[in-house]
Design a protein around this nucleic acid. Structure first.
Lengths: 199, 199
DNA sequence: TCCATTTTGTACCGATCTGTACAAAATTAA
DNA sequence: TTAATTTTGTACAGATCGGTACAAAATGGA
C-alpha cells in the first residue's frame, strides 16, 4: 500500500548501530546518521522515532546479536569457571575484531555526557547490570553444583569479572589486540577461587 | 598593572576540572563553564585559551593532584605486590569518595565522541598509557628485587591491573561503593603470580 | 483513470554550540 | 589628571544541533 520505502529497515538499523558503537550516542548527529544510512531525516523519524529511540533499538540489536554467543557459552559450558572464561575469551575476540568498532558498545557508547542525556546513560547502565547479573547466576549455578565452596561470594566474583570485561573495552579502544586481551584474561582467570574446583 | 582579574585562576581551574570530570569533555559547554566558574567567556578565553586547552590544563591538574598519592604508594611500598595493591585500594577509595565525581577523569572524560575531538581522546589515551607504564616499571623493579620469577611478564601484569582499574571507573559510575570496589581488588590481587613472593 | 495513502526530498525552525568584536570599567605609571 | 594597559560585560557571528512543515513522487485499490 502506498509508496514503498527505498531502504531495508534492518540494514539501516545495523548501520546506525555501527555508527553509535563507533562514536557513542552524543558523537553521532542526525545528519551523520541520515547520510550514512542514506535516509533523509523525515524518513528516519518516520521509521524509528527520535534519536533516543533509534539508539535504544540499535543497542537492542547489538545486545542480541553480540550477546547471543555469550549467552550460549554461559549456558552450555560444563562448569562455572569454564563458562566465565569462555565469555571473557569471546569478548576479547569480539572487542578486537577487524572491521568493527573496538570494545563493547554497551560499555562505551554513553559514559559521560550532557545532563539532558541521562536517560540514555542509565539505559546502558541497566544493560550492564543485566550482564553482570547473568554472570552471577552462572556462578551461583556452579556453587549449587559443588564446583565452588559455599564461602565463595558469587556476586563479588561476578562483579570482578564484569569489571575486567569493562576495562577490556577501554583497552581495546586504546589499541590492545586480541593476544593482549587474552593475556588479561589469563591473569583474570588466575583469580578464580582456589583449588576447590577439584574437590 | 591594569585592571585586575576578579577571579582566582587556580580555583577557577579546579571548578573546570570538576565539571569536566563529572560530565566529560563534550558534556560541558562553554556556557556551563562560564556560569559555573562565574567568569564570562571572553575572560575565560583570555585566561585559558580555547576549550581544548582548558580541558588539558584541567586534566593536568587532576593528574597531578589525584595521581600524586598513587605515585607515592608505588614508590614507597616495600614490594611490587604491595605497591600495586595500595594503588588499587587508593583508587577504590578515590573513585567512590563523597563530594566528588565517581571514577577516574582520565578514563571517563573522553571515551567516544565526535570525530573533531579525536585529539582530546588520544591525549587522555596517552595519559592512560603513562599510568600503565608506571605500574609496569614498578613490577619490573619487583622482578629485579627477586620478588617475582623471571618468567613473569611485567607488561602483561601491568596491563591486567590497569584493566581492572579502568573497569572500576565504570563500576564506580554505575553506583558501586568503596566496599564493593575493595572486593574487586581482593579478587584482582588473588591473581598475583603465584607463591613465588616467598622464595 | 482517479483517489487514498505513505514515503521522499527540500527547506526550514528555534535552540545551542564554540568563539569573538567592541566599548565601558578599573587599575598603574607618569 | 592624563595616558597606557588589561579585564569585564554585552551582544553577536557562523555553524551545527535535534526535529519538522510541506509539497512532489510513488504505490495499491476502486
Amino acid at each position: 500500500m502506498a509508496r514503498p520505502r527505498k531502504f531495508d529497515i534492518d540494514q539501516a538499523l545495523s548501520q546506525a548501530m555501527h555508527l553509535f558503537w563507533e562514536r557513542g550516542y552524543e558523537g553521532v548527529s542526525l545528519t551523520d546518521l541520515s547520510s550514512a544510512m542514506n535516509i533523509n531525516k523525515p524518513s528516519l523519524y518516520a521509521a524509528f522515532g527520535d534519536k533516543e529511540q533509534l539508539f535504544r533499538r540499535a543497542v537492542e540489536l547489538y545486545d542480541t546479536s553480540t550477546g547471543l554467543p555469550a549467552e550460549h557459552a554461559l549456558a552450555e559450558a560444563a562448569t562455572a569457571r569454564e563458562a566465565i572464561e569462555r565469555v571473557l575469551r569471546l569478548n576479547a575476540a569480539d572487542y578486537t575484531a577487524d572491521g568493527r568498532p573496538a570494545g563493547c558498545m554497551i560499555v562505551l557508547a554513553a559514559t559521560l555526557g550532557q545532563v539532558e542525556n541521562e536517560r540514555v546513560r542509565s539505559f546502558l547502565a541497566r544493560c550492564r547490570a543485566n550482564g553482570e547479573e547473568a554472570l552471577r547466576r552462572r556462578i551461583e549455578r556452579g556453587k549449587a553444583a559443588g564446583e565452588l565452596g559455599a564461602d565463595v561470594d558469587a556476586a563479588a566474583l561476578a562483579k570482578f569479572y564484569t569489571t575486567v570485561l569493562q576495562g577490556m573495552s577501554i583497552q581495546a579502544r586504546d589499541g590492545a589486540g586480541r593476544e593482549t586481551l587474552d593475556e588479561v584474561v589469563d591473569a583474570a582467570m588466575a583469580a578464580w577461587p582456589g583449588k576447590a574446583s577439584q574437590p
